[in-house]
């Protein structure tokens, strides 16, 4: 290491000559500065970018498969919205989100939220951030915002790529709704945007769960896996009729309600219920994460 020979330059910077300096004052825009730094960290990380690229490939692959098979006997088959894609490219957005929702999006959410605190703890950078100092509540808030931004970006990546691929391969026209009514293309695009927004908001509860798990451990993979397990268990419980009584409160129960946007009369009440459940999960697990993180000993 050639640097070992480097002499320490003297007086390169003003040193701590003020022995009784007044308490430093807060600079305006400090929140924004840290948030920008956090976003750069999250979106600059190669793993996170690769994940976004992977998600963006889903509509590309799906579109290609449907395009190649559209004139064969298999054309027009498939669950839900997939059969409609060849008629109208806009439906590729819905179909791609529908395919990613059970596993890929929870996985993405788990990775981003599970890493938030536990990743810093594992790297040891958490103690240095807190000693800067960053208040724990503020750090948790910044981490939550950056995670939400990343998850929103993941949904957006799927939706935008699906929109482009759908438009190029199948064209975009007036949208035939679930009830059979046709609405103009501008209305259709708005409805599809509503679907994407609802899907993104549906993941906020899971973000809160992931953040909470992330405050419990110094092993980010554990928090990530735990978050995915929560989503899967919720989906499994949702299929058991014996547990019907708890279904409305389950994290994943309302996830597929985005279909409301494809009805002639959008069921705002149903959508509101879904968002209310997410808000409840955010409130409970956000509070748990806060109480845990603001009191825990940082020994990492």
């Amino acid at each position: 290491m050639s640097l070992a020979d480097a002499a320490v330059p003297t007086a390169a910077m003003p040193s701590g000559s003020a022995t009784h300096a007044a308490a430093p004052t807060r600079v305006r825009g400090a929140w924004g500065r840290l948030l920008r730094s956090e976003l750069r960290l999250v979106f600059g990380r190669r793993r996170n970018i690769a994940l976004l690229v992977g998600l963006a490939c889903v509509p590309l692959l799906l579109g290609t498969v449907l395009f190649v098979t559209r004139d064969s006997a298999l054309g027009g088959q498939g669950p839900g919205f997939i059969s409609r894609v060849t008629e109208n490219g806009l439906f590729l957005v819905v179909a791609a989100l529908f395919m990613c929702l059970p596993f890929l999006l929870p996985l993405t959410t788990g990775i981003a939220s599970g890493d938030a605190i536990a990743g810093e703890a594992q790297a040891g950078t958490l103690r240095y951030l807190l000693a800067v100092p960053v208040s724990r509540a503020r750090l948790l808030g910044i981490k939550a915002l950056a995670t939400l931004a990343y998850v929103a970006c993941a949904v957006l990546a799927i939706a935008v790529v699906a929109f482009v691929v759908g438009a190029v391969m199948f064209g975009v026209g007036d949208v035939t709704l679930l009830s059979g009514t046709t609405v103009p293309v501008a209305d259709g695009v708005l409805r599809i945007a509503g679907v994407a927004a609802y899907v993104a908001l549906s993941l906020t509860g899971l973000v809160a769960v992931g953040l909470f798990l992330s405050t419990l451990t110094e092993v980010p993979v554990g928090a990530m896996a735990g978050t995915v397990v929560v989503a899967i268990v919720s989906a499994v419980l949702d299929t058991l009729p014996q547990l019907a009584v708890i279904h409305p409160g389950l994290l994943t129960h309302h996830w597929l309600d985005f279909a409301e946007f494809l009805r002639l009369e959008v069921g705002w009440g149903v959508l509101g219920q879904g968002l209310a459940v997410q808000a409840a999960w955010v409130a409970v697990f956000g509070a748990l994460a806060w109480s845990r993180f603001t009191t825990a000993d940082v020994t990492s």
Partner: peptide
Amino acid sequence: LVEGPAFQPYLSGAANLARLDAADATADP
């Protein structure tokens, strides 16, 4: 300096310091 240095492995030395400075609400950007 607590129990050894710890920084983001993928960031450069300068970027790591910039990150810590960004976290300091009283530091002049």
